[in-house]
Design a protein around this nucleic acid. Structure first.
Length: 898
RNA sequence: GCGAGGGUAGCCAAGCGGCCAACGGCGGCGGACUCAAGAUCCGCUCGUGUAGACGUUCAAGGGUUCGAUUCCCUUCCCUCGCACCA
């Protein structure tokens, strides 16, 4: 057999056409509750990369597995077709985003078909079509009606390269880089449309606990992102310190700024608050900046919220600590952020590290008010807070009436006792700003009227379609004058359209619902069918969407459940975050130039090889290295398998149904049992390892003896079907060659009678026995054994073992001797009983004596082949006493004649 | 700093209370086949050992247990996410 591979191109084309003709992957609308398998739809960049191939091979393999198991399966594909790259590409190539996008979709569709992915293309969607995006607009208006849309002036993240705003989720890392182009993000003040995802913050957070089919990492990332914190808000009266008014002339009263609210999680430390700090853009800071040169300079020139050092400037104001009545100085400080808490904080240098650093720098008081929990009966001892803050909870000291309370209780009491204090919950999650100053997106369906303000477009006027693309700097919609000018739907006066489009994450927040009824013209999705078919049973995609897409989709699903009658509150039951395909430990990327092109691999080795190599290389969630060597050997494996099937078909063997055949039969059963479990768990690598092992066994069988045709064919047939989810084309080819009618895609998954436990015990027995023989031969220096006897233990030892496992008597020997047939064994029984007693705790049940005999008998050929000596498996009744003494359940005695 | 996930023989990587000197693969070594190479097949790959044994190992150190690679604690290291978050 040569290693030259096989004609994959012909095979793959033939079966892709056959699937097409048969509509093999269509899901009729009338199925009841299909298994919904979904990969995150791609942005149509024009080229399928290895990440896509891995992602979609996982979903495809799982979908095929479930279909062969008899499930109805929904496995659709679509396009995340709006987005900036299309706009940039259109500018560069002097075309328009629509044509460019559809070109890309066409080539990527071809690439997907060449990979053999089995999608229901009748359900294909592309978000850039008015048929799709009208429902973005409709949903926007429904959200609006439900009070979940808000327009407000906001400080927003602005990417100067993309010339658009970004959601907080789209800004990455400490350096605050744009998620698409890695440009440092700037801040801008803009009027924006927001979806009020914060209204769902609590549910989005709490429901994470029930997402048991999700990886912990993703769940944790979402928890962090929502960032709920319980604490208290408390007011500090802020006013000019008496002396500060002197400069303004006599008689003027100190100016009052009134109560300023601070948020704290550590109200228990309030007695140690020795200064108060405001964010540079807090209204009071801004007011002060107008008249105080020092504050102005700090706010406008010195404040550096990104710096490591906390900086600040004294204001001359004081704040009244509501717990102590003390006047404490007020600073404007850059470590106070206006979007965290209330933009103002009480600073407790004794118990907060950052406050401590600032206090040291400005020479402010540092007072310990919390002591570590003392030993029982001892008095709390103040911690040394001169060098560093003590940040743990503990017992209050220096806190008046509250001294002696533990932190937790003190927080509750102080919240009750201080008039202005009340419990408050802070979230890190912000509302989702969806306005984008770009052309290639869903127009926000709003008309701005001077008289009526912003008015949503009436439902009957939807969709608001995009005008022709204008190649301009800035927002093309702004330049589309004719499109922009319209009339107000309320007063009929002249008005202008909103020129911002929606974040493309709006599109992807509900696309999984559209697949249920992709052509529906009067609603975004068929409610009844969505209720039957949702949620997605298995969702697969990259970890990069852990927060953005997956959080927004959960939000949309909950809103649709509350207001549109959807009976599901979570979109994705099981989530798999697949690992990266790397090259020499590094992420493949265009900039590094270490990209392996799937197209090249498909041409050279075929789609089946690419798919099989990827699926066997690692567990789906792990990163792994692409290896050309691995690809070659995978290809060789498929070619060998093809050769085996062809050899079998052209020249059917006529061997007996002997012991060897029964061994092979047992291995077929075992492989089916194990591989099926692994497919269920999506651990394709293990399933495929088992399958490849079976191929090896079959080959060994063929090479050792004339195979029993029925057994050998059963093995080949099982292998072909176990491989079919991952290498579907070749599986079809071989299924056909084996003389089956119909597609393997529709064939029944093979089933096994045996369970895992039986399989592992049998394999272990055989393996251990072979291992023992090798040991003996080597250690005893036997050059060339003449004969090997394998002696199975007598029945009474199995009985004794069972008794020993079940017994909890102290004296096991006594218990055993109550059985007459054991007692009859005399010294042998006593000896074995002692062995059992010694290993009491570690005993476990073996196969039955008959099963052990059969297993060894059928595996004897392996030993004969290896040692080139006849092997006899001896039953206990035929064996001599010397041999029997060494035989135990799970461990036959071995006699080698040399 | 906080949180999540990890650290297993030359490398990759399973195992996650006894079946474990620890699956599998790669690499290396030896053998079969072959004119030869490749492919394929059979072994070996911590140490000692003339009958299946013993000794030392699963980041380091403690602990629980009759028994720990597997459970608990501490420390160190790696990867990822979040973070001047009040």
């Amino acid at each position: 057999m040569s290693d030259a591979g096989y004609d994959h191109a012909t095979v793959e084309r033939r079966w892709q056409e056959a699937w097409d003709e048969e509509d093999a992957y269509r899901t009729p609308d009338d199925v009841e509750d299909p298994t919904y398998v979904l990969g995150m739809y791609p942005y149509p960049s024009g080229k399928l990369h290895m990440g896509h191939v891995r992602n979609y091979t996982i979903t495809d393999a799982y979908a095929r597995f479930r279909r062969m198991q008899g499930d109805d399966v929904l496995h659709p594909m679509g396009w995340d077709a709006f987005g900036l790259p299309a706009e940039n590409a259109a500018k560069e190539r002097d075309t328009n985003p629509r044509d460019w996008t559809f070109d890309c979709i066409e080539t990527m569709t071809e690439q997907m078909e060449s990979m053999g992915f089995g999608y229901d293309w009748d359900r294909e969607i592309a978000t850039c079509t008015p048929e799709y995006y009208q429902w973005n607009q409709w949903l926007f208006e429904r959200f609006h009606e439900e009070g979940l849309v808000e327009r407000r002036d906001a400080e927003v993240n602005w990417c100067p390269h993309c010339e658009t705003v970004l959601a907080d989720e789209q800004v990455e890392g400490e350096a605050e880089l744009c998620w698409r182009c890695d440009t440092p993000v700037e801040q801008r003040e803009l009027e924006q449309w927001f979806l009020k995802i914060t209204e769902y913050a609590d549910e989005l957070l709490e429901a994470i606990d029930d997402l048991e089919g999700w990886p912990n990492s993703v769940r944790q990332m979402q928890r962090n992102w929502i960032g709920r914190q319980y604490g208290a808000e408390v007011d500090f009266e802020v006013s000019e310190a008496p002396r500060a008014s002197d400069g303004r002339g006599e008689g003027s009263e100190p100016r009052e700024y009134g109560p300023v609210t601070a948020f704290t999680t550590r109200l228990d430390t309030i007695h140690g608050a020795t200064f108060f700090a405001l964010a540079p853009d807090h209204p009071i800071s801004e007011a002060l900046a107008e008249e105080d040169e020092d504050v102005r300079r700090f706010v406008e020139e010195e404040a550096d919220p990104d710096g490591d050092e906390p900086n600040g400037v004294a204001t001359g104001l004081t704040a009244t600590n509501p717990a102590t009545g003390d006047e404490i100085p007020v600073y404007v400080a850059d470590f106070v952020l206006s979007d965290v808490g209330t933009g103002a904080l009480m600073a407790v240098p004794g118990h907060d590290e950052r406050d401590h650093i600032f206090a040291e720098k400005k020479g402010l008081d540092i007072v310990p008010v919390i002591a570590p929990e003392p030993e029982a009966g001892e008095a709390p001892e103040a911690p040394d807070v001169e060098e560093a803050a003590y940040t743990e909870d503990g017992v209050l000291i220096n806190s008046g009436d509250y001294s002696g309370l533990d932190s937790e209780t003190a927080r509750e009491r102080l919240t009750e006792d201080i008039d202005s204090a009340e419990e408050a919950t802070q979230y890190q999650l912000r509302d989702w700003g969806i306005s984008r100053q770009r052309y290639w997106g869903t127009p926000i369906p709003v008309i701005h009227c001077e008289e009526c303000g912003p008015v949503t477009v009436p439902e009957e006027d939807l969709p608001v379609e995009l005008p022709e693309f204008i190649n301009t700097t800035g927002n093309p919609l702004d330049a589309a004058e004719e499109w922009k000018q319209t009339t107000c739907p309320e007063c009929g006066g002249p008005a202008e359209r909103e020129t911002d489009t929606m974040d493309t994450f709006v599109d992807s927040s509900w696309y999984f619902l559209r697949y249920v009824s992709p052509g529906l013209e009067d609603a975004p999705f068929d409610l009844e069918r969505a209720n039957d078919w949702m949620p997605v049973d298995q969702y697969v995609g990259g970890i990069e969407h852990a927060v953005m897409h997956l959080l927004y989709s959960r939000f949309f699903t909950k809103v649709l459940a509350d207001h549109e009658g959807l009976e599901h509150r979570e979109p994705f039951t099981n989530l798999l975050a697949q690992g990266m395909v790397q090259l020499e430990g590094e992420k493949m990327s265009k900039s590094k130039g270490n990209v392996v092109s799937p197209q090249r691999i498909v041409e050279e080795y075929g789609a089946d090889t690419a798919r099989l190599f990827m699926m066997q290389a690692a567990q789906p969630e792990r990163d792994f290295d692409w290896s050309e060597e691995g690809v070659r050997s995978t290809n060789a494996f498929l070619a060998r398998l093809k050769g085996m099937v062809e050899d079998y078909v052209s020249d059917e063997p006529a061997g007996d149904d002997d012991a060897v055949a029964s061994y092979v039969d047992g291995e077929i059963e075992a492989t089916i049992a194990l591989a099926t479990d692994e497919y269920d768990d999506l651990t394709f690598n293990k399933a495929l390892r088992e399958t490849q092992d079976l191929v090896r066994t079959l080959r060994q069988y063929r090479d050792y003896a004339e195979p029993h045709a029925e057994t050998y064919e059963r093995g080949l047939s099982a292998v072909v079907r176990l491989l079919a989810p991952v290498a579907p084309h070749l599986a079809e080819e071989l299924w056909d060659e084996l003389g089956n009618d119909g597609l393997v895609a529709d064939a029944a998954w093979p089933t096994a009678e045996v369970d895992r436990d039986h399989v592992t015990k049998r394999r272990r027995l055989v393996e251990n026995t072979r291992e023992d023989i090798r040991d003996i031969v080597e250690v005893a220096g036997i050059e060339d054994p003449n004969a090997i006897d394998v002696v199975v233990a007598p029945d009474w030892k199995y009985d004794a073992l069972e008794i020993a496992i079940e017994s909890d008597a102290d004296n096991l020997i006594g218990e055993l001797m109550q059985e007459s047939h054991i007692r009859e064994q005399g010294d042998a029984a006593a000896d074995y009983g002692q062995d059992l007693q010694a290993e009491r705790e570690a005993l476990s049940m073996t196969l039955s004596p008959e099963a052990e005999y059969a297993a060894l008998e059928s595996a004897a050929w392996l030993i004969e082949r290896e040692f080139e000596a006849p092997v006899t498996v001896v039953g206990a009744d035929e064996a001599d006493e010397g041999a029997l003494a060494n035989a135990e359940p799970g461990r036959p005695a071995i006699e080698i004649d040399d």
